[in-house]
């Protein structure tokens, strides 16, 4: 079989390997969907089957995913807010329309940049940590140990992270909205001589609840993607410590790719209609 493959024409071999990776990718997606479904199941119905999702690990995860990310989220979203203001003013100057920069900043940040940058950061921080943890646990037979102790690994390992991510990522996005708008506001008020309160008044006039929600909805999807991808990749670990390193990297790359693609698709789907 392997020999036959090797002697077959290149085109055939390529299509064979494309086919195989497609099947693998699809089965990963299927596995991911099952994981998400099971996590939800245990969260809602676990108690009845002796598989309680406990509060303590959920809080611990919230701490790790959310609270500990606040400094870096603050720094980056502030920076991006200022960056957007600088570029906006520079471009709009050519039309003498600098004051319109508030428009661009308010929509750009809440609809696009805050969720995107937060998602990417959290994928890098917590998606990787989750994949590494699951990979290490699989290799150390800890996942097997859970199973023989009657503790469903999805319930015990995945569900708490899932819940924590679903709460904390949107929360971080709201924070990023605020901070980035503040950052942009500081720059704009300094550069254009607009007072901060006038700036925020303008922002509030412009933004509708829908704009904020647009960003939050995306962040919920990102949350699901980050956890599911981290777990699927982490569980696919092979070999020792090296294998863990590999799946961790893979989880981050997959996570960020999925976030950026989804972001585009979501924007496309929700702005036409």
């Amino acid at each position: 079989m392997a020999d036959a493959l090797d002697s077959s024409p290149l085109a055939l071999r390529v299509s064979e390997s494309v086919g195989r990776s497609t099947v693998r990718a699809l089965s990963s997606v299927g596995f991911g969907a099952i994981l998400a479904g099971q996590s939800l199941y245990w969260l809602v119905l676990g108690r009845r089957q002796g598989q309680v999702v406990r509060a303590r690990p959920v809080f611990a995860e919230m701490m790790e995913i959310g609270i500990r990310a606040i400094p870096i989220v603050t720094l980056l979203s502030m920076t991006i807010g200022i960056m957007l203001a600088i570029q906006g003013i520079y471009q709009l100057q050519r039309f003498g329309a600098q004051s319109q920069v508030v428009f661009g900043v308010a929509f750009g940040m809440t609809r696009e940049f805050a969720p995107l940058i937060t998602g990417i950061l959290v994928a890098g921080r917590s998606g990787s940590a989750l994949a590494a943890r699951l990979g290490t646990m699989t290799i150390n037979q800890e996942v097997d140990a859970l199973r023989v102790m009657g503790m469903n690994p999805v319930r015990y390992l995945v569900a708490p992270s899932f819940l924590a991510m679903l709460v904390m990522l949107p929360a971080l996005v709201i924070w990023a909205d605020l901070v980035s708008l503040l950052g942009a506001g500081l720059y704009i008020s300094a550069d254009l001589g607009m007072t901060l309160s006038a700036y925020f008044g303008r922002v509030l006039d412009l933004l509708r609840v829908g704009d904020i929600l647009h960003g939050l909805e995306k962040s919920v999807i990102f949350a699901v993607l980050i956890v599911v991808i981290a777990i699927v990749d982490g569980a696919s670990v092979k070999g020792g410590a090296e294998g863990v390193g590999r799946v961790t990297t893979r989880a981050v790359v997959h996570g960020i790719t999925a976030i950026v693609l989804t972001d585009m698709l979501f924007a496309f789907a929700t702005t036409r209609g």
Binding site: M137, N140, Q141, E142, D144, V148, M149
Partner: peptide
């Protein structure tokens, strides 16, 4: 049942 795994499999 109780199981002691080869590498211990304690939760770190």
């Amino acid at each position: 049942i109780g199981v002691a795994f080869q590498g211990g499999a304690l939760f770190s």
